[in-house]
Design a protein around this nucleic acid. Structure first.
Lengths: 214, 214
DNA sequence: ACCTGAACACCGTTCAAGT
DNA sequence: ACCTGAACACCGTTCAAGT
């Protein structure tokens, strides 16, 4: 067999790295809802069907994008105290996802742990390890991670979907029946303001405290 | 003006209640991904465009469905102790959503509070009220609710998307590098089993405890 | 007043044929 | 070996025309 096998046939017009770069540019420019196979192909100046020679399908494309993004994330500072370490690792996950909310949607669409590369899993391992260091069994540590993951992914998804101008569009918060909904009526139109403030850190701290308290 | 205005023109072939019933039947039979305007119309034996005389658009249809579902939910038993009351109300929300996971997806797509009817908001009001009873300010009580909501909606969405046969399909949990991911490597193929167990109640209790502890 | 078909502007994906 | 157009099987929605 030759050391450099000579290539035959029609020359390629694109490559997987080129496709991933274009996909990322498209998401950053127009949002991830606009990333379609057909638009991406048009952006690259190729036929839509050509993409299928470089990625298996759209889901595969998204996973490649996700692992590429995770691999390039900076490693966070990790304190020694287990509780603080969990908070730091969870916050790093959260911040990474906050920048790329579409990633959170993909991560809910499958048993994600096995689909991610080492860099992303490092934070998972950190949280599990810190829970064990705090005296939990491995099984309990998985529960700790999963609870934190639910909270984190929920916050990201709600935030991502509330960001648009459509949120709270034709809603009056002053119409609550004080007899049936006394507390909501008392809060009234302050709710949108209160709902805008970032409560992820305080909620996370409360959750971790609760999870590590026997 | 006449007491019963006589109807003129072409007689209706369907009605909003009929459409909602058919939509619900379609979701229950084939899953909510299969609910499309065209399929629903076909099910009713009408043209797709006829639906638009009875509902504003698909989003409107889903919201009608959601409020109908919420209105018909049984009210949960609510204990006197504030922490227990929050847990009971959150569990009722969770169980309602677990039965209709697509609802969770809609609820993340907008500032949902203003789109729901009284029955669904009653549980929101209960949680906010219980947090106030536990000594929080109204603003803090909103934070308590939001944290619980993130955790709940995250659990529902992850669960809904992991339920299919596609989850964990071609994943080997034994391939973790023990040097880089020691705890995941130690847990190995026990992860899928551990991830299947329902940890919502214990995580919720931990979260509520943490949120109500100053 | 209500319904309809045609049309618009899209999707993801497959597959035989071409270079 | 790689690319392509045509085709399949769909979407949500609008709108002029019909009853």
């Amino acid at each position: 067999m030759p050391a450099t096998p000579r290539r035959t046939g029609r020359p390629p017009v694109t490559s997987r790295p080129q496709i991933l770069a274009a996909a990322r540019a498209l998401i950053d420019a127009d949002g991830w809802e606009k990333l379609t196979v057909r638009r991406l192909a048009a952006e690259l100046g190729i036929g839509p069907t050509t993409l299928y020679h470089h990625v298996r399908d759209k889901q595969d494309l998204l996973l490649l994008l996700l692992n590429e993004y995770a691999a390039q994330l900076p490693a966070p500072d990790l304190p020694d105290d287990p509780a603080d370490r969990i908070v730091a690792a969870a916050t790093a996950m959260h911040d990474a996802l906050a920048g790329w909310p579409w990633a959170a949607e993909i991560l809910t669409t499958d048993g994600f742990v096995g689909l991610l590369g080492d860099p992303a899993l490092h934070l998972v391992d950190t949280i599990v390890g810190a829970a064990i260091a705090a005296g939990r069994t491995p099984a309990q540590a998985v529960t700790v991670f999963r609870s934190i993951w639910y909270y984190t992914v929920g916050e990201i998804l709600v935030r991502a979907h509330s960001a648009g101008p459509a949120a709270y569009r034709d809603i009056t918060f002053t119409g609550f029946d004080p007899a049936r909904l006394p507390h909501l009526a008392a809060i009234g139109d302050q709710w949108p303001t209160l709902a805008t403030t970032d409560t992820y850190p305080s909620g996370l701290r409360a959750l971790v405290t609760g999870l590590l308290t026997p």
